[in-house]
Design a protein around this nucleic acid. Sequence first.
DNA 1: TTGTACGCGTTATCAC
DNA 2: GTGATAACGCGTACAA
Lengths: 323, 323
Amino acid sequence: MPGTRLSDLASSLGLNIATVSRALRDDPRVRPETRERVRVEADRLGYRPHVAARALAEGKTRTLWFIIPDLEDPIAREPAWHASQFLLDRGYDLLLAQHHNDESVFRRILDRLSRGGADGAIIIPDASSQGTADASLWDSRVPFVYLDRRLAGTLAASVVTTDNRAAIDSLVEALTSGPRGKPDLVVNAFGSTRENSVETVRRAAVDAAARRLGIPVVGPSAPFSGSRRPLVLASSEATALGLVGRLENPDTVGVGVFDAWRSGLRPATRVFVAVQDFRAMAALAVDRVLDQLGREPGPPPTEDLIPLARLEEIEEGGDFPLD
Amino acid sequence: MPGTRLSDLASSLGLNIATVSRALRDDPRVRPETRERVRVEADRLGYRPHVAARALAEGKTRTLWFIIPDLEDPIAREPAWHASQFLLDRGYDLLLAQHHNDESVFRRILDRLSRGGADGAIIIPDASSQGTADASLWDSRVPFVYLDRRLAGTLAASVVTTDNRAAIDSLVEALTSGPRGKPDLVVNAFGSTRENSVETVRRAAVDAAARRLGIPVVGPSAPFSGSRRPLVLASSEATALGLVGRLENPDTVGVGVFDAWRSGLRPATRVFVAVQDFRAMAALAVDRVLDQLGREPGPPPTEDLIPLARLEEIEEGGDFPLD
DNA sequence: TTGTACGCGTTATCAC
DNA sequence: GTGATAACGCGTACAA
């Protein structure tokens, strides 16, 4: 029986549509006895409100979108899980949309979003987009925050991101102090695979830290054959391993990467992993969007820097959980 | 300017709403000259149709849902990517919903789906659900297919899945023929981490294959110390590695798993990976849903078995791409 | 406490 | 070719 409507319930009960509608939303004005009758009948007929009709009438969908490049993006997975849980608790649904790093697809999603597709969004933007896409979103007044990275050339929109400068400082600190002494070269591989605001910040932070320590820095493509004690920093394990493999000197002082180290290899004296706090990021992103949802006047954009969850040292012969 | 409506365009142009509506959808009945005027003005005011209003009037959302456990599920990622691409080509959008293997969340999603949330869905169900959840979906007549696995105790719904029986046969064939000769024991670890229809089929197929070859079979928790030439079969690399680590005899004849081998380890004479054809699965799932969308009477349920994309042998010291 | 009537923004069916 | 107008299903002031 596809589609029990409110009017069906009403006629079946000999009541008015309005009464049924109120009863179902626990309006105190309707007599408890009537309310119960309606509930029972609604249950019997399997009534569910039509989402489009409700959205049109209320002007709300009770749905948020999480717009991501695709499911392969490691930044997307954990936040999506947490954000979905947080929102369910608050009576919202979370749907995910993939833009495939394709600007036209991104635009298409934002178009729908800005015309009632959802009440708001958490967005991990395309790295290469030029920030023109979100202009329509901006003046449509749909609440949204960028997660992890911001769109290049973007308007002043809210962002929730890891405190990447502090994270780099922690990594460098952990890898240059202690018995092994200082490296004589830092290989700065951030941004070597793709360019975005996160990679830019990390790269700059490495440069600054090295300058403070008086250690020379080279990029990933530069020759570093002269080094005897290099330190390798990169965003991913894959990039780091690739670089270490090209080093002539096996006595690498240290390797620092973000989020995960799964290979079980240990190509340096010390390997540190900066683990981002995705749960906190998701929680805050959700809060920011829902906050904007409440107030009428667009509040000023916020910029939240989340500390790392932890700095993890990879031990010799440690486990490496897969899946 | 949040929300330019059709009526705004109409009054701004001195035309009727209906005319504007027709013009925007390229109705041949409206004069080309008028059509162009409308297009220009719509562009100028940044008009976008309101999705809820359109859905209510048309009875369609031009959106499909891909309902998955969560983004961590390896089965979800590739099909989601392909399905999204296929659907964009056909003018549809794909949104993803996570049910977190939680039956109440699953129900909630299906409820919304069955009441106009989307035109149809591709579903990777909860492994532990009992098949009562989809009953409401079933008689709401919303087109859907199960992907990869089916709900236990489910009604006769369409399924698109890998031909797991044939896949197991290929794996066993590849691992038992050739110079190394036959194993003296098969360790059948399918279903050891979680139980669902896929794991059940694979486990049964292994049992059958071993019986044909006259080789004894044990489960993953059984002692297999007596074996000198064991063959280990499992769904994931992690499970297989865990088992091999517990073997006393280092001369493992072979290891067979599904989809990916990333560790770079090679704990057996031969390692084979059965790679599923996610692209083909996604393509067919999309087709099945859109097919049902066209016809009025519910067509009979289909069951599609997709062959493996390939059987891959892991070579000594091969690369292991991460990320 | 319940019923009437209008609005939400589009599409579709009539007339003209 | 274009203009009224009735759906679509629900929420909600306003009446009663």
